[in-house]
């Protein structure tokens, strides 16, 4: 039984032409780092939030999300609280927006301990000091008394990570944790996350649009497009030989880390919005391999291709031609 598992999760919003999430299956084992990669609007944040029982208002759902044995879809509030307060924590994209600007850092770190676990102030603060040191902040006692605007974005994201760890979760959900930061800070934050994950044996689900970042920090990668998982493989395999045209497109549109920079080839077109739907493969309109009469007829199922899963009608035939 994996620590986190999504079984065929679909999320429908009223007035939308297609589901936000369409049959998403995904799992993260204890101690495993997994990335979920996709463009803006692909549904990756909705996926992550579902693991905390946070669904968009008015959503109808099918399927199930299980965290450490607790089923979240249709769960009673007590179960949802139990997951949020001890099993899973989320690190959000923009720490400036995610931490109350008028309360002290110490307050952010200790409030859950004091109000949920009912611990004393001194005990909670001692734990907060430990965690601030663990995420590599220079002066924990001073940071406890500071306000968010007195810290830089990178420092504040470390505070956010410390805050996520107060409840001693087994699973960390990271929703674009480095997107709001500058590049050098990004690397530091990823290093902190990775170290904490390995030291504490946490399961980690990293949500990102950056395939290279995902490959550098994670063991396995899921690629998501328009609410569906289109390919999943180990990080090394996926980067070496992408099998889905969308994965290949993502790789082709980011500059290579080594070797001479080449001209980038962006994916043509724009991602499918929630008000559009297609009878066939959602990516067909942007896919240079798409075959009329096949790809625009029915959506491809996620099927094994070698060691991995790919959702493409042409996965077996033409896709061996795809390379970086």
């Amino acid at each position: 039984m994996p620590l986190l598992s999504y079984e065929d999760l679909s999320v429908l919003l009223p007035g939308m032409a297609r589901p936000v999430l369409d049959g998403v299956s995904l799992s993260v084992a204890a101690g495993e780092a997994v990335a979920l990669v996709g463009e803006s609007g692909s549904g990756k944040s909705v996926t992550a939030r579902a693991a905390l029982g946070l669904l968009p208002p008015g959503a109808t759902t099918a399927g199930q999300v299980t965290v450490d044995g607790c089923a979240l879809i249709g769960a009673d509030p007590a179960t949802v609280r139990a997951v949020r307060t001890g099993k899973a924590s989320m690190i959000f994209q923009d720490p400036r927006a995610a931490i109350n600007p008028v309360r002290r850092i110490g307050d952010f770190l200790t409030e859950a301990l004091r109000l949920v676990d009912g611990r004393g102030r001194a005990e909670a603060e001692a734990r907060a000091l430990d965690l601030l040191a663990a995420v590599g902040l220079p002066d924990p006692p001073r940071h406890l008394r500071q306000y968010p605007h007195q810290l830089s974005g990178g420092m504040l994201q470390r505070v956010m990570i410390a805050g996520a760890l107060t409840a001693d979760p087994r699973l960390l959900l990271c929703d674009e944790p480095t997107t709001a930061l500058d590049v050098t800070t990004q690397a530091e934050i990823m290093a902190v996350l990775r170290a904490l994950q390995q030291d504490r044996g946490l399961g980690l689900l990293l949500i990102t649009h950056d395939l290279d970042l995902a490959a550098a920090g994670c063991d396995r990668i899921y690629v998501m497009y328009a609410g569906r998982i289109v390919e999943t493989a180990t990080a090394a395999e996926l980067l070496a030989t992408p099998r889905h045209p969308y994965t290949a497109g993502l790789l082709g549109s980011s500059p290579p880390l080594h070797g001479a920079p080449e001209r980038l080839t962006p994916i043509p077109g724009v991602p499918m919005g929630l008000l559009e739907s297609a009878p066939g493969c959602a990516f067909a309109a942007r896919c240079r391999f798409a075959r009329p009469g096949l790809c625009d007829q029915s959506p491809p199922e996620l099927a094994p291709v070698g060691e991995r899963l790919v959702a493409c009608h042409l996965a077996d035939s033409i896709l061996s031609e795809v390379d970086r």
Partner: peptide, 26 residues
């Protein structure tokens, strides 16, 4: 509507405490 309110809820804080400490306070 602020994100930090959703974040506080996502950390399992009781709704009443979130309203008091993060919504009314701000």
């Amino acid at each position: 509507r602020r994100e930090h309110v959703e974040v506080a809820l996502s950390r399992g804080m009781p709704r009443g405490a979130v309203i008091r400490r993060h919504v009314l306070r701000n």
